[in-house]
Computed example of a mutant assay.
Amino acid sequence: MMDQLKLAALHRIGETNPPKLERHSFDFIVNGVSLFEQTEASNYDMCGSLSNSQFEPELAGRINGRTAAKLTSDAPIGGHRVALFVCPECGDFACGAITALVSRTERGVRWSDFAYENGIDDASKLDLEAFEFQWAAYLSEIEGSKTD
């Protein structure tokens, strides 16, 4: 049985003291469960790697196409690591990111080997099962982030 992916709005409330940017991004809901919660990305004060164009059109225009390509058309058979949740202030990998190995399969696309990474320290593996999504439904959901 294939896993189901949906994008859901994810909102980080801004603050003035200490200064924190307000961010509108997307959570990845897999089989009805928040990946933001499963990975404990909130413990690292992260946001989704896809911006919500309804609230952040300029940022979404700059990053969603590139991120969506990494999750879809650029995903090789052997896979590559893709940031799912990132620093809400700068999106820089060095601030830390929740990543997954994204790879194409015969039936669709697979997310596996979830980890917290920052490019300096060894990756910290997260205890999550792999997910495999049917290609057409997955592509439609990810591509929708560019216009939502």
Results as ranks from 00 to 15, higher is better:
His11Phe: 09
Ser25Leu: 03
Phe26Met: 07
Lys125Met: 15
Ile98Ala: 05
Cys95Ala: 04
Ser140Pro: 09
Phe85Arg: 01
Arg66Ile: 15
Ile77His: 15
Asp3Asn: 14
Gly91His: 00
Leu101Glu: 02
Asp92Pro: 03
Gly65Asp: 11
Lys125Ile: 13
Val33Glu: 15
Gly91Ser: 03
Ser51Met: 13
Ala130Trp: 04
Gly61Leu: 08
Lys146Thr: 10
Leu71Ser: 01
Glu58His: 14
Asp27Ile: 03
Glu132Phe: 09
Tyr44Glu: 10
Ser53Ala: 12
Leu84His: 00
Phe36Pro: 02
Ser53Met: 13
Asn31His: 04
Val30Ser: 01
Asn43Ile: 12
Glu132Arg: 13
Ser51Gln: 11
Phe133Ser: 04
Arg12Gln: 06
Cys95Pro: 05
Gly78Phe: 13
Arg66Tyr: 15
Ala8Asp: 08
Ala83Phe: 01
Ser112Leu: 03
Ser112Met: 05
Gly32Val: 07
Cys95Ile: 03
Asp122Gln: 11
Ile120Phe: 15
Ala9Phe: 09
Glu141Asp: 00
Glu40Asp: 12
Gly48Leu: 00
Asn43Cys: 13
Asp3Cys: 08
Pro19Glu: 10
Ser73Leu: 14
Phe55Arg: 09
Gly48Met: 00
Ser25His: 05
Asp122Met: 10
Val86Arg: 01
Glu143Ile: 02
Pro19Ile: 10
Ile120His: 15
Val33Asn: 14
Ala8Thr: 10
Ala69His: 14
Arg12Val: 00
Trp135His: 06
Pro18Cys: 01
Asp122Phe: 11
